[in-house]
């Protein structure tokens, strides 16, 4: 085989090998995290600390974002309804159902992916390039157990809690918009007649799936960082893009499974 043929195959093969390695590394990280959780190798103090960082500090962020989303959604849908049949009876029940099943966990997941995912990748990436991760290894501390597992548990619990909070915030803001702009009775709006157990289960499964995947993807980006501060920057960017993408793909898969199996 001559040099140009070798270069051609290398040019095609190298990106494929890189992608396969990246996926393998990420899934490996996820499996090792699950194994550590199953074996109860959990630093609970760190879980509580991470829960505070991920959860409490995201509350203002979620309040503003979901508050506005609730108002915008109700306003836009109400304007559409007004043009067709000006009957707003089912606006509130449909809004609450779609918030529980879809928007509250997914928008919360996307918000956490950007805020928390970038933070996790930057923190662990900095630890990697300053050899702190190697120091953990030399002290017999598994970086997955020590860095990823507490964040995965904290993030799962907190995305679920924040999703519930997001439903409340968006419902209240949507209700105020409906009442103020379209004179819809608050009791009429606050009806759960279209919401059933399946919607709640699907919303909760989404929140837990996003909560697990965000620290795994971001943490893996941090652990595979190389090349100093520039590498940390790239790891952070990669983490935000990959976690956001993962939230959208998981949303599609869980929604599809939800419609098929319920």
């Amino acid at each position: 085989m001559n040099a140009s043929t070798t270069n051609f195959f290398e040019a095609i093969g190298a990106p494929v090998v890189d992608i396969a390695r990246a996926w393998g590394s990420m899934f490996g990280c996820g499996l090792r995290t699950l194994r550590a959780i199953a074996m109860a190798r959990i630093a609970w103090r760190e879980v509580i600390h991470q829960s505070y960082l991920i959860g409490n500090r995201s509350v203002p962020f979620i309040t503003v974002t979901l508050g506005f989303l609730g108002m915008i959604s109700v306003y836009q849908v109400a304007m559409q309804i007004k043009q067709i049949i000006p009957d707003f009876t089912m606006l509130g029940p449909a809004f609450i159902q779609i918030m529980i099943r879809e928007f509250a966990p997914t928008i919360t997941g996307l918000m956490i992916a950007t805020r928390v995912g970038s933070g996790i990748a930057a923190e662990i990436g900095s630890m990697t390039v300053t050899e702190q991760v190697d120091a953990l290894r030399m002290c017999n501390a598994d970086p997955i157990v020590y860095l990823i597992v507490p964040r995965a548990i904290a993030c799962m619990v907190m995305v679920l809690m924040l999703s519930i909070y997001a439903v409340l915030v968006s419902t209240i803001s949507g209700m105020l918009m409906a009442n103020g702009a379209f004179d819809i009775n608050m009791r009429t709006f606050l009806s759960l007649q279209l919401t059933n157990g399946d919607d709640i289960v699907i919303g909760a499964v989404k929140a837990l799936a996003y909560g697990f995947s965000i620290p795994i993807i971001a943490g893996n980006a941090g652990l595979t960082t190389s090349g100093g501060s520039e590498g940390v920057g790239w790891a952070t960017t990669r983490a935000v893009v990959s976690t956001s993408f993962a939230v959208v793909v998981l949303d599609f898969l869980i929604s599809a499974a939800g419609y098929i199996f319920t």
């Binding site: 300053t130 050899e131 702190q132 190697d134 120091a135 953990l136 290894r137 030399m138 002290c139 017999n140």
Partner: peptide
């Protein structure tokens, strides 16, 4: 490997202290 690592001490060039 964990058992062997108990026998090691490592001073890193950039300290690598847990900040």
């Amino acid at each position: 490997l964990a058992e062997l690592r108990r026998e090691y001490g490592y001073l890193f060039q950039n300290y690598a202290l847990f900040d």
